[in-house]
């Protein structure tokens, strides 16, 4: 039983760190701010949450476990809000989409 828990935790750790790596590669390769935001807000959140869950699985007392899960909940609540605010601010100021974009229904008609 203990071995199984340890193996699950190890797998979660490696998967989470791979997601973090994928998010940062996405940050590097994607063409503009808004597409980069997809990588950071999804794969990045997923990576950090998986590693916190690994900690919760590995922890042997309930206090640590519930705190780690509370951390996951906080992170899931705050990550979309912050990326949404950043996207809204950037669009309002006038950072435009990459030239390969196919449509922009938000652009004011003028």
């Amino acid at each position: 039983m203990n071995d199984v828990v340890t193996l699950i935790s190890a797998a979660l750790l490696v998967i989470g760190s791979v997601f973090a790596l994928v998010a940062s590669i996405g940050l590097l390769r994607l063409p503009d701010l808004y597409t980069r935001m997809h990588a950071a807000s999804k794969a990045g959140t997923m990576g950090a949450c998986l590693m916190l869950i690994a900690l919760a699985v590995q922890a042997n007392d309930v206090g640590t476990m519930s705190r780690a899960l509370a951390g996951v909940v906080f992170f899931l609540l705050t990550a979309p809000v912050s990326s949404h605010l950043l996207a809204k601010a950037a669009y309002a100021v006038g950072y435009r989409l990459a030239s390969i974009s196919v449509m922009d229904e938000m652009k004011p008609e003028d």
């Binding site: 997601f19 999804k42 794969a43 989409l97 990459a98 196919v102 229904e105 938000m106």
Partner: peptide, 26 residues
């Protein structure tokens, strides 16, 4: 959906030629 989305982003980022058609819809 969260797991699915992280997986899709991962596949898309790691594919050698990113065939993106980004855009904003209402």
């Amino acid at each position: 959906e969260l797991v699915l989305s992280a997986w899709r982003v991962a596949v898309m980022v790691l594919s050698p030629n990113m065939n993106l058609k980004p855009g904003i819809f209402a």
